[in-house]
Design a protein around this nucleic acid. Sequence first.
DNA 1: TTGTTTAGTTGACTCATTGCACTTTCCTAC
DNA 2: GTAGGAAAGTGCAATGAGTCAACTAAACAA
Lengths: 206, 206
Amino acid sequence: MTVSPVSRRERKKAATRQAIADAALELFLERGYDQVSIRDIAEAADVSTTTVFKHFTGKEALVFDQDEERETELVAAVRQRPAGQSIPEALRRHVLDTWLPIEAHPQRAGFTQLVDSTPELRAYAEHMWTRHTDALAAAIADELGVGHDDLACTTLARYVLEIPALARGRQDRRAAVETIFDILARGWQPPGRPTTPPTGGSTTGS
Amino acid sequence: MTVSPVSRRERKKAATRQAIADAALELFLERGYDQVSIRDIAEAADVSTTTVFKHFTGKEALVFDQDEERETELVAAVRQRPAGQSIPEALRRHVLDTWLPIEAHPQRAGFTQLVDSTPELRAYAEHMWTRHTDALAAAIADELGVGHDDLACTTLARYVLEIPALARGRQDRRAAVETIFDILARGWQPPGRPTTPPTGGSTTGS
DNA sequence: TTGTTTAGTTGACTCATTGCACTTTCCTAC
DNA sequence: GTAGGAAAGTGCAATGAGTCAACTAAACAA
């Protein structure tokens, strides 16, 4: 669905990868994560077990197939925000408009249940999120014209990426997200540009 | 060092546990985490491999022996804070006075290097921290007289426990901790007690 | 067509982790 | 004291994740 691969070779590769991921998810949902071995998955997808590891780094990665996009979207939400909108505001909008609908999708129910009930997968999911900290922090720092290792930017990035974990299991996820962003928006202040005096700095960044 | 166990049996048990942990740390520091197998550790401690797993839940747990205390201290820092001191302030003091000295201890250098250079251990360490979220959140909620699942309390707890990860590798850790706590102290507001009107509520809690 | 890349296979291997049956050691109650 | 039970420890076998090396075969570039 994303970009159809060019050559036949790459198409076939993508096909087997998809076959493996599909087989894995189906078996996981059916029997539970721990009751399914890599062998089972390989057999269901009609490949060898080593082939599975050629496509996926480990068993957990079979469940979370596409997370590259999330990072891209996140960075874009910061970089291409409307003029005059603060960065925390842009992130709040992104989370509310993009993440919540995805999680609320009815077909996602079984998936969510699977992840929530498997500690190993919960741990992996959380790390997946925080792994994007640096990329998001860099985007924020760029927008503000400070160095990529600016602590305030890294902190904001990390705290935003913790939100899914904090909102999990709440009755009203939307309200939860709003509450947390209220804390961040109130407390976080953009770091001063090292070169510019702090007079008259409007929030327009790009 | 903590509390000497009562019976001979418990003393012996503690002794073998310590022997295993010591052997493990020594080997890890010497060869690196991945180059040491459980067999090696068991042999060095003169026990069987199954005994290792009777004392430790897994290979990573061998590195982080004592983390129970951290949680206890953390909760105590909130519960027994001086009258009139806000909770974020109490946590700031605790982090500055307790965590930083420990991490700065010169004997800790090799240990820190070990953890930082092993992705598996970094991941485990981060989860170790966030695993205490619920206990800390409950303590905060108790002090404020709200329910244990109050979102603001959980958020503060989680964000404080992220601080070690955020401050790691900074040149001036103390300044980093201060910066992050400034964000939290400014943004976080104690949730209103559901039963009491907001007039004249002093901060003395216990 | 020929040669090169690369997906996939096969099978053996390491290692963490668990379960089971058994011995030993300590504690407790008689 | 001594008989039992609880708990620590052992040995062994098994499962399951993940790796490695040598090989086959399809697909591609020339």
